[in-house]
Each structure stands twice: as structure tokens, then as C-alpha cells.
Design a protein around this nucleic acid. Structure first.
Length: 424
RNA sequence: GGAGAGAUGGCAGAGUGGUCGAAUGCGGCGGUCUCGAAAACCGUUGUUCGCCUUCCGGCGAACCGGGGGUUCGAAUCCCCCUCUCUCCGCCA
């Protein structure tokens, strides 16, 4: 969420920037500013009265000690009206505080200055592309047929066990999953990321910290009996490691990498383009997360983009990198790069990674701050994350792009992990 | 699941109604000493909000797991919640 200081000081700027995300902020901001000024007024008053109460209470203490009971009782009389007034003021303050918070969390993050305006995928800006799109796509078999042909991923079995969107990986299909996960983690480790294995269920506080709650609870599986949520991405637990933490500036950037299964209800988003591995309720993903100094967070973002680009290149997948337009960006992001790989049989680009800088938007919810050496003041960190990478569509692209008469060729970087070089 | 104990500053650990934002130790930071370092000694050491201030900062308020209550006054008493530990039960 945006900080109240920024809203106070840069109202017009915020309204202008949020137009890039097609968000009309003026009304909300006006309401926030009214609530903020009454909040401050009430707080000043109650602070002053509390001071008075504290003064009198101390006086009573010393009068009691001196045995001046009558004077003490007289002083007590004075406190009753002050106490009542404090009560009525704080009764007013609580709803104002709540209302203000509820308004502030409705404001999306400001887009970075490089973000283009726009309404959807068509307005995204292609940054660069790489790899060679295979030509033989006329006869290419889509991955949902290939997985049956080679019996490596079983959707029907998943339906029996759980339901649609929970596939069972079998034999070489399972091995390929494990190989990709290990490859991604090893590459991350080489790039200086520390591996963590977080819980895959989180509490409400964590859901709030990274912005899934409130409002997006419909996208997460909710374990109601214990009030836990299945994570939609490792971003949630890994970023929340730093909730309520004050870091030293010299520790930044903090770089973590995690493999987790991810769970998404995907309510209302099923359609023509979601066959096979294109959209699942449970899938595997390796996520990179950085906690960065605000002065260097865009350098971190570039590093992360380069890292992900290295992964898709090493897998020999044709890819392109898009800088998302305002309308296609998430609520919490300031700048997002999407990675897409070419799918030879579907003849379209599949999103396999999303790398974002959230600047201080999540940090303000998380209360994750840092202190420069010798500095008294704390400042909010910047948080970033990116998929490195999400498996299912990578698998889809590998299957479709690498299919041959004799079977599916495994990218050479994966062979040491799989132990085989062809699925047949 | 049953019974009991507990939750205090970066850590350890005092504090059972007033002068306690909190002793003491460790750690951290600054200094003295030293060619330098260690030791020793001296000083300093949380967060948030509000008001004031050109900067340095000053003043006030809140925070002793979270929420509520009693009281002129709560780390301290009462209630609820969460979590941790010990024992028993169950168990990968």
C-alpha cells in the first residue's frame, strides 16, 4: 500500500500516475485526506489529555505517599471528566483509522515511469526476443496429445484423485519435473540466491503482507478449519519471511529462491486457451525473491530479468520479453516484465514468468524496513520477485517444440538431471 | 486430544500496582589506550504516531505475545485469543 506521507504530499502526482493503470484515484484520495486530518486532530487532542492524566496520576501517587488522602481524592475527581473525554475521542478515532486503512489499501501501486498506458495484452511493449521459432509446425502435435502418446502426464487420473487441473506426472514425465526443478534451483544458487523451503500454507497476516488479502481470497484455496491459505506462489511465504523485520543496509539485496507447488482456484478463468498444461490448479514453480535497497532495486530487477532470460535460453526455447502496460499490470506492481515462450503446436506465446518490482508497496504492508549504518531513521525496502520458472508451460513448450519422429528430445542442459535424452 | 508451565528490549534475564521504556549481563555503536589489534575503562544503544523545528534535534503519546477489562495509575490484577515449552496419549 502507498504510504500516507506520499498521499499527503503528492496527491496530484498519484492521481496522474494511477491513470496509467486506468485507475481513478481522486475520490479515494480526497476521502483519505479528510480522514487523515481528522485522525491527526483527534490524536493531538488525546495525546494532550493523556499527558494531563499522566501528570495527575503521578501527583496522586506522591500525595498518597505523603499521607494527604483528601488532596489525593480531590485530584481523583479531576480525572473523571478527562477520562470520559479520552474515551469518547478514542471511540471516534478507531473507526476513522479503520476507514482510512480500508481506503488506502484500495489504491494500487504507482506504475514506474517507463510503464506505457494501455488496456490489455495488445498494449504491452516487446523488449526483446531470442531463440528460433521452429518451422515444422504444420504437423506439430499439441502437448495434450503428446503426454498421452508417451504416457507421461495423466489428467484423467488426477480427476479421479482430486479433480480437473490436478495432473499426475508419471515415469519420465515425473523425472522431467524433478529435473527442471533441480536445474532452476541450481542456476539460482549459482546466481547467489539462497534456497529456502517454506510452508505451502500461510496465515491471514502473510496473505495481507504480499497483497493477496483482502479481495483476492477467491483465488486461493482456504483451509477453513485452521484459517490457512494454500499459497498461490512461493512469493507469499518467502517475502513474508521479512514481515516486521528491520534489516541492515549492508545486508541488501537479500536474495532467496524457493521451489514450491502452487495452488490457484482460477475461479472464472477457464476457456478455450486453457487446455492441457496451460492452466492448472496445482503446479510447480521456482520463485526468486529479492529484498533490495530502494536506490538499487531497478538494478536488482534487471539482474532478475537477465537471470530468467538465461534460463529460457539454456533450455533452447524461443522467447520474448514484454514490458507490461499499465492496464495489464497487477495491483501491487510498479514494473513487470513477462516472459513468454513459443508453443509450436498451439502456435502462440505462453507466459512462463513474470518478474516485478513492487518498490515499497508490499514493504509498507509487510513493515519491512532497513537502516543505513549510523542512521537513526528506518526506511521501507523494495521487494521484487519473479518466476524462475513456472513448470507446466515450460514443459508444454519443450514437448511441442522438441518433438521428432523418434520422440521428444530433452534440452542438453537437462540431460544430466533426467538421465535420459529422449522421451519415446 | 488430556494435564501443567510460560510469553519482557538484538539475545539472555530481573521486575507482582505509582518515580519502569523497563535493572543487570551479553551483543552492537562511539571513544580512551595501542604502531595496530585484543583486553580494560568511559559513553551510547528499540519501534510507531502526533506536534514543533531550515538542519542537528526538541516536546508529547503509545508499545513488556494480541485484544478487552478493573484502577486516579497496569509489564505487574481480571477475562478472551494466539503461540511456545514439559509430561501423558496418538503418530510420519
Amino acid at each position: 500500500m502507498l504510504t500516507i506521507n506520499l498521499i499527503r504530499e503528492k496527491k496530484e502526482f498519484i492521481i496522474e500516475r494511477l491513470k496509467v493503470k486506468n485507475f481513478e484515484a481522486e475520490e479515494i484520495i480526497n476521502r483519505i485526506l479528510v480522514l487523515d486530518s481528522s485522525r491527526r486532530e483527534i490524536q493531538s487532542k488525546t495525546d494532550w489529555m493523556h499527558a494531563e492524566m499522566n501528570r495527575i496520576s503521578k501527583e496522586i501517587g506522591s500525595l498518597m505517599k505523603a499521607g494527604k488522602r483528601d488532596e489525593a481524592d480531590a485530584a481523583k475527581e479531576k480525572t473523571y471528566s478527562i477520562k470520559e473525554e479520552i474515551k469518547s475521542l478514542s471511540d471516534k478515532l478507531i473507526p476513522i483509522d479503520n476507514d482510512m486503512k480500508n481506503e488506502i489499501i484500495r489504491l494500487p501501486n504507482l506504475p514506474h515511469e517507463s510503464v506505457a498506458p494501455g488496456h490489455g495484452a495488445d498494449d504491452n511493449v516487446k523488449v526483446r526476443e531470442g531463440g528460433i521459432i521452429p518451422l515444422s509446425s504444420e504437423t506439430a502435435i499439441p502437448h495434450w496429445d503428446l503426454i498421452k502418446k508417451y504416457d507421461i502426464i495423466d489428467f484423467e487420473l488426477g480427476i479421479k484423485l482430486t479433480g480437473a487441473g490436478f495432473p499426475v506426472y508419471k515415469g519420465k514425465g515425473a523425472k522431467l519435473q524433478r529435473a527442471l526443478i533441480s536445474f532452476f534451483l541450481d542456476e539460482g544458487e549459482k546466481a547467489g540466491y539462497r534456497e529456502v523451503i517454506p510452508p505451502i500454507m500461510v496465515n491471514e497476516e502473510s496473505g495481507f503482507g504480499t497483497g493477496q488479502l483482502p479481495d483476492k481470497e477467491g483465488q486461493m484455496y482456504h483451509v477453513t478449519i485452521d484459517n490457512f491459505y494454500l499459497i498461490p506462489t512461493a512469493e507469499v511465504p518467502v517475502t513474508n519471511i521479512y514481515r516486521d523485520v528491520i534489516l541492515n543496509a549492508d545486508m541488501l539485496p537479500v536474495k532467496n529462491i524457493a521451489y514450491t507447488p502452487c495452488f490457484r482456484r482460477e475461479a472464472g478463468s477457464w476457456g478455450a486457451h486453457v487446455r492441457g498444461l496451460n492452466r492448472l490448479h496445482q503446479f510447480d514453480k521456482v520463485e526468486i525473491v529479492q529484498i533490495a535497497h530502494p536506490d538499487h532495486s531497478y538494478k536488482s530487477l534487471d539482474n532478475m530479468v537477465n537471470h530468467v532470460e538465461g534460463l529460457v535460453s539454456k533450455l533452447d526455447l524461443p522467447y520474448r520479453i514484454l514490458r507490461l502496460c499499465g492496464g495489464d499490470m497487477s495491483f501491487t506492481s510498479a514494473l513487470t516484465y513477462d516472459f513468454e515462450v513459443w508453443s509450436a503446436a498451439q502456435k502462440r506465446w505462453l507466459e512462463v514468468s513474470s518478474v516485478s518490482n513492487f518498490e515499497s508497496f508490499q514493504a509498507n504492508r509487510l513493515k519491512c524496513r532497513f537502516k543505513d549504518k549510523g542512521d537513526k531513521q528506518t526506511r521501507l525496502v523494495h521487494t521484487l520477485n519473479g518466476s524462475a520458472l513456472a513448470l507446466p508451460r515450460i514443459v508444454a513448450a519443450i514437448l511441442e517444440n522438441n518433438q521428432t519422429e523418434s520422440g521428444i528430445k530433452i534440452p542438453s542442459v537437462l540431460v544430466p538431471y533426467t538421465g535420459f535424452d529422449i522421451i519415446n
